[in-house]
Design a protein around this nucleic acid. Sequence first.
DNA 1: TTGAAAGCGCTACCAG
DNA 2: CTGGTAGCGCTTTCAA
Lengths: 338, 338
Amino acid sequence: MTKPSVLDVARSAGVGASTVSRVLNNHPHISESAKARVLAAVEELGYTPNLSARSLRSGQTGAISVLLPMTGTAFYETLLSAVQAGLEVHDYDLALFPLLGERRFRRFRESGALLYHADALLIVSQSPDQLYAGRLPFNKPVVLLDAHHPHHHSISFDNPAAGRMAAELALSRRLPLVLLDVAEGPGDWPSPAFLERRGGVLETLSRRGVTPIQTLHAHTSPNYGREAAQQLIASGIRPPFFLLALSDDLALGASRQLLEAGWQAGRDYLLLGFDGSLEAAQAGMSSVAQPVSQMGGAAAETLLAALGGGLSTLTQRVFAPSLQERASTAASLVLGSR
Amino acid sequence: MTKPSVLDVARSAGVGASTVSRVLNNHPHISESAKARVLAAVEELGYTPNLSARSLRSGQTGAISVLLPMTGTAFYETLLSAVQAGLEVHDYDLALFPLLGERRFRRFRESGALLYHADALLIVSQSPDQLYAGRLPFNKPVVLLDAHHPHHHSISFDNPAAGRMAAELALSRRLPLVLLDVAEGPGDWPSPAFLERRGGVLETLSRRGVTPIQTLHAHTSPNYGREAAQQLIASGIRPPFFLLALSDDLALGASRQLLEAGWQAGRDYLLLGFDGSLEAAQAGMSSVAQPVSQMGGAAAETLLAALGGGLSTLTQRVFAPSLQERASTAASLVLGSR
DNA sequence: TTGAAAGCGCTACCAG
DNA sequence: CTGGTAGCGCTTTCAA
């Protein structure tokens, strides 16, 4: 009642183990009769190959592990779809390991749970230094996406520039500024990308001598944007103002809450987010956009190059932000149409 | 320049291979000196264990593969977080394989890409029959979540009952009914759960002799809810009406579009969704809720039981729907306050 | 076209 | 406490 192996199949089919292997791997030059008998035996015994043994032999797994902070957002869906698309031509599969919360994160770091049976590792939105105190416990190709590091291949977005771009737009509207920042809790760091965005924003503000009249903090999920907006309303603020949120998700969450208070983006206050998401476009919200799919595609290319061994020098690609101006930052409000 | 093995470490540390293994696996009764020399050698050579070999030896991988249709929604995030939480006590890791699109799906089915180096398989929101024409190419424990099948352990939601419950509420409001259904494209089936919901709705409607004045179809993503709503508006419909959407995501997407046309849920039209999402609650939208986290927890329990071998009989757990009534289905509209 | 056998890297067993 | 060794299941030589 133990799991059948190639040898069991071989015996049952009356052939050698190597013939079984050849049939299973579609080798040429196999007699029809042998093939038929092997397949019949496989069927009868319910044989399934042992992937660990196969990988041990071949030195390959056919999978690429992806370490990412979470999955429940359109951003990661788009990003990973693009990576996937670029990879499946070469028959690689993506295995996702969301770090969902501090607990899991700790396990990763401490117990050294080297769980990736994979040929390469894609680290998304995270710094390897943060993940692993010292050297990566992984001697296969590593590529960073939406993050960067001096010692690793990386595909990233110019978040400081994006932050500056956003701040410039905000300043140009000459309204009191409210900053919707990300929260830093114990064990719940925002991704480095957010910190860089914030850095770009603050740098520009301080250079112009401007201080936000209020800074709110929210965890990076659209639902938390609502909570922050509640705080804002509770603070007794009155429009008009310029709400600069560090992500589209946060901005959208906040705008929904503000709408319930009767304030509409582009009419009562101005609103700007980051990422250039589809939802931002649909909601008529301005955004500092990043080319998410392109970045995913670039990551796939880099992974393939690294796997092919043709990557002796460090590849570091940085994508530039672009501004998507829509109704939510309409300049008319500035002119005091209210 | 080849990857170092235990033997290399052993030689470098001047000990035997088994001692290296013992140190690496924290066995007791190891002399401090041996331990120190092994660890030094590991560090120096940059040794990383080969997981395929380890799994081959032990017959275990420490991972559970999850096959799911997509990841970019709060629903799956919540569901999988719960599974994860129930599993990590036992040191299992979840490896996610989103089926993102038809192409990947085909690969799975045809090339028999048996990519899961795992101890068990969790199939989410999918029918094994749809995924694999015949028998599952996997002889380890299999559990279905948000799906069911006569031959497999399963944790599911009573979608037909949920559909009936939704239809009953809708009928009680005595308004023209618009149904926001899911689309079925080539290679893009909605999950079985949606089909069952629809079945429950239609069954109740036909029993009462009611026909929707319009049925819209959208892919299962919030963004598509907007498109459907555009069609609805374009059709020249006038409030009041009752919009019954097969998911909260769809409902929310539609409501945002309708709001731009000046129609507000609960005031101009009534709106009901499914799933009991946090966003629905925040938006004051009624929903036929399912206990997502509980279901995830139950899946974890079932997986653990199956892995422990203590699951001789088939486990099939079905969770019941509960109605969350909020402002979006306020009965006042029925009374003609308009 | 086929079979026998070596060996991938690791851990468990058995001596010492 | 430690080292030698067998063997997990598979694929790939090498000979036939």
